[in-house]
Computed example of a mutant assay.
Amino acid sequence: MNSKNPELISFLKSRRSTPVLQLDEPAPVREQVEEMLTIASRVPDHGKLAPWRFIVYAGEERAKAGDALAQIVMSDDPQASDERLALERGRFTRAPLVIGVISRAAVHPKIPEWEQIMSAGAACHNLLLAANAFGYGANWLSEWYAFDNRAWPALGVKETEKVAGFVHIGTRTEAPFERVRPALEDVVTWRGAF
């Protein structure tokens, strides 16, 4: 008979993303971030390929990333409003720490590319869990710049890669609220009895 871990079950059942505008200082310290990334790396990884990597945006690098995004917006729309440019400049400074999860999925003779992509998604989720386990709020976002390869050089993403998401981490400024979750009967198909 298997024994359960009630504390872990309760933690998993109450996991909640924190809206990015509710994340503030202090950020995790480097040692905590290294532990979070170690946890994020413990995901299913058929073939032991590590088909993902992490980019940590901290300090002034966050503002530099936002400046690069604003430049792209200005090149697309020279009439972009000051508000829009301020929004783009602030993309990486909304939370005190941002970690990019980058998919390195590629054609492989035995491991389907789809499995590699899902492994990167699992790394994003494990990073959320790790941040929450350390007492921080976190949010996994993929906004326009995750899909616009013109932004990638400034963000450190190679042209052979894809962005699985940007995980924003910080201290919650408000208690997390619960949202409606799907009813199991709407998302589960039972085949067979046990």
Rank of each mutant, 00 (worst) to 15 (best):
S103T: 10
A105F: 03
A105M: 04
A106I: 04
H108Y: 13
P109M: 10
I111Y: 14
I111N: 13
P112K: 14
P112H: 12
P112Y: 06
P112W: 12
E113D: 07
W114T: 13
E115F: 13
Q116G: 02
I117Q: 13
I117Y: 07
M118F: 15
S119A: 15
A120V: 08
A120N: 07
G121F: 05
A123F: 08
L127W: 14
L127V: 14
L128I: 06
L129C: 13
A130D: 00
A130H: 05
A131H: 01
A131M: 04
A133P: 07
A133M: 00
F134Q: 15
F134D: 09
G135L: 01
Y136G: 00
Y136Q: 01
Y136L: 01
Y136C: 05
A138W: 00
A138L: 06
W140G: 03
W140M: 11
L141W: 03
S142G: 09
S142D: 07
E143A: 13
E143I: 10
E143N: 03
A146R: 05
A146I: 04
F147L: 06
D148Q: 09
D148S: 07
D148T: 08
D148A: 06
N149A: 15
N149Q: 14
A151R: 05
A151Y: 00
W152K: 03
P153C: 08
P153H: 11
A154F: 09
L155A: 04
G156F: 08
G156E: 07
V157W: 06
E159M: 10
T160G: 14
E161K: 05
K162P: 06
A164V: 06
A164R: 04
G165D: 07
G165R: 01
F166R: 00
V167H: 03
G170Q: 01
T171H: 12
T171K: 08
R172L: 08
R172M: 12
R172G: 03
R172C: 02
E174H: 14
E174M: 11
A175Y: 00
P176D: 02
F177V: 09
F177P: 00
E178W: 03
E178P: 04
R181E: 07
P182V: 01
L184S: 13
L184V: 13
E185C: 11
V187K: 12
V188T: 11
V188C: 13
T189I: 09
T189L: 10
T189A: 12
W190P: 08
R191Y: 08
F194N: 13
